[in-house]
Design a protein around this nucleic acid. Structure first.
Length: 568
RNA sequence: CGGGAUGUGGCUCAGUUUGGUAGAGCACUACGUUCGGGACGUAGGGGCCGCAGGUUCAAAUCCUGUCAUCCCGACCA
């Protein structure tokens, strides 16, 4: 590609609406442009990267035996109504009507459609197992689009679905996808971690996420360097870490604690430690109210709690007026004693003796409280958020935590959708049996952001060769020097003849501008044709994170072409 | 959906407090000088100041409403 013909409006200044590095760089490098909140256009450079990512995904999916097809994005409501997700997705789904007032949506994910396709076209056990996939634009009306294409409302997703006649078959199909995903993200040049995950709204039994560790990640992950355990915060199992009890060992006693609402205030007022206190939070679960208790220095894991309670809508904090009504006190004094709603207690609280709780009375707490003696929990379970330094649930060593960008997620769905929609197959014995499913997603456009987020320096993007928009750029230093431009054209043509994605900066710009743009858009190899071309010598340089202290290397023209070839 | 902020040429922003003919830098066009890390000079083009009402002799500026965008939280590839 000739740079003089390329739509590449690079920006010197950072657009004001970009916050994180990858978003800023993708805008500056003219990969994307914003059209609305969470809606982006891909300019030629961005599209090239997108297509390279898609190509890698296709190759690995095809190698794993999956078949590509393409579904519509505009979907009649029926399929989603049948599975119940028309309501479950609710506000997150873009819904619209046609001229006859019929309901449609823009597809947020396609379990229903793939399931229906198999129902319509596959009958016999002989045709299983089968894995189908597509790379397609998805639509989700996100509550808060953010960070450029990391969380956008229109995005490209690779979604795959496996169909098996047995649980063992599902395990096998799942493993194939798991392996393919590892190869894909390795080829994309991402530094990623596979974590156990909650299966959330998708339903089903097991699920894992592919996380790119990054400070701008939206998910918390806990991992152990010793045994390799890794899990999303939502899922990470917690191990009790008992702390010393308060010394006072008498019976439960009500104490006056004026204007003490928070744990911190309580700590300084009573001279106790946060872990001597158990906090009680009132939640609204569907149309019911429940209470949840964790130790004072812990946080409630709402995903675990929601799964435990089994509510279908979102679990949310109870409204303040309801807290007042249920506890007969101002917010901040809730406790389990005398509370007329189910109390879910974190298992760590069971290790506590003589602790302090709210007394359901303004400005009052109880001390010397003990489970069993003073109140009875509805349920005791793991409902807290894991913390850095907690014991690893597998090997007991201290756990580490990080933030991650979720680039892939794989699920064992089981029979959730096949049951709901009626996907069965006829077995050898002529009986009708239910198909078991898996589903496997990759946020394709999100991968671009993740790659940029992980690979950049103060000068711009540093693309891994596998997904770089161009593999090499040829820069004649002086556009008006014929010897230089001719030599540059020759190298460019040789690179192209060898099938290398090459770019030539044939613009009549000063060298500084060309160098800055080449760095910004992150081309892996830069070839500069300058003054020494008379001696048959050009320079080349690799774009790496160590750009500043890496030397350019002089070489003969032919050697440079060979070098670029060797980088692939 | 709660909390905070911002809307002025393609991009970054000043001007709003205290109403009085719309500004700068970058980008763009032409010419000239330059040419190894985002050059310089001269001359140009481009904005109903988010939108709609209102107050006023006069509104980017004051008032009301509305829309949009971003950030912080609850949700997800």
């Amino acid at each position: 590609m000739r740079m003089s013909n390329l739509l590449l409006p690079t920006l010197r200044e950072v657009p004001a609406d970009a916050e994180i590095t990858s978003h800023k760089l993708m805008l500056r490098a003219a990969m994307i442009r914003r059209l609305g909140s969470g809606i982006y256009s891909y300019l030629p450079l961005g599209l090239r990267v997108l297509q390279k990512v898609e190509k890698i995904i296709r190759e690995e999916m095809n190698n794993a035996g999956a078949q590509e097809l393409l579904m519509p994005a505009l979907l009649p409501a029926e399929a989603y109504q049948a599975s119940g997700r028309w309501d479950v997705f609710g506000a997150s789904m873009f819904k619209l009507k046609d001229r006859y007032d019929r309901d449609y949506c823009l597809g947020p994910t396609h379990e229903e459609l793939f399931t229906q396709t198999v129902i319509d076209n596959v009958k016999s056990y002989k045709e299983y197992p089968m894995t189908l996939y597509q790379i397609q634009t998805k639509y989700r009306d996100e509550a808060r689009p953010r960070f450029g294409v990391i969380r956008s409302r229109e995005f490209v997703m690779k979604d795959a679905y496996s169909f098996d006649t047995s649980d063992e078959g599902l395990d096998e199909s799942y493993k194939k996808m798991y392996d393919a995903y590892n190869r894909i993200f390795e080829r994309l040049g991402l530094d990623f971690t596979v974590v156990d995950a909650d299966s959330g709204a998708m339903g089903g039994s097991g699920s894992q996420e592919f996380m790119v560790k990054s400070p701008v990640g939206e998910d918390g992950i806990a991992y152990c360097d010793c045994c390799g355990y890794a899990a999303n915060y939502e899922k990470a199992e917690c191990v009790n870490a008992p702390k010393p009890s308060a010394e006072d060992g008498g019976d439960m006693e009500k104490i006056h604690t004026p204007n003490v609402h928070t744990i911190e205030e309580l700590v300084s007022f009573l001279g106790a430690e946060p872990y001597n206190f158990a906090k009680t939070i009132i939640y609204k679960a569907d149309d019911k109210y429940i209470a949840a208790m964790v130790r004072g220095d812990r946080e409630i894991n709402e995903v675990k709690l929601k799964n435990l309670v089994g509510c279908t809508d979102d679990l949310e904090l109870a409204e303040p007026y309801m807290v007042r009504q249920l506890t007969n006190a101002e917010v901040g004094f809730a406790g389990p004693v005398g509370l007329d709603i189910p109390v879910y207690v974190d298992k760590e609280v069971e290790t506590m003796k003589n602790f302090i709780i709210g007394a359901n009375e303004t400005d009052m707490h109880y001390k010397n409280v003990n489970i069993g003696k003073d109140f009875t929990p509805h349920t005791v379970a793991d409902i807290r958020v894991i913390e850095e330094g907690d014991a690893c649930p597998r090997c007991g060593k201290p756990i580490k935590t990080a933030l991650g960008i979720e680039v892939g997620h794989i699920f064992k769905l089981g029979t959730k959708y096949s049951n709901a929609l009626g996907l069965t197959f006829q077995d050898e014995d002529g009986r009708s049996k239910v198909v078991t499913m898996g589903c496997y997603g990759i946020g394709v456009t999100r991968c671009l952001s993740a790659a940029v987020e992980q690979n950049n320096d103060e000068n711009g993007i540093i693309w891994p060769v596998s997904i770089a928009p161009f593999e090499a750029i040829v820069i004649p230093v002086n556009a008006k020097n014929e010897e230089q431009t001719e030599a540059a054209e020759k190298i460019y043509n040789e690179l192209k003849a060898k099938g290398i994605d090459a770019l030539i900066d044939d613009r009549n710009e000063r060298p500084g501008v060309k160098f800055k743009d080449a760095d910004l858009i992150g081309i892996p190899v830069r070839i500069v044709v300058g003054k020494k071309i008379g001696e048959g010598i050009v320079e080349y340089k690799e774009r790496t994170a160590q750009t500043s202290d890496e030397k350019t290397v002089e070489a003969a023209v032919d050697d440079v072409v060979k070098f670029v070839e060797g980088k692939r």
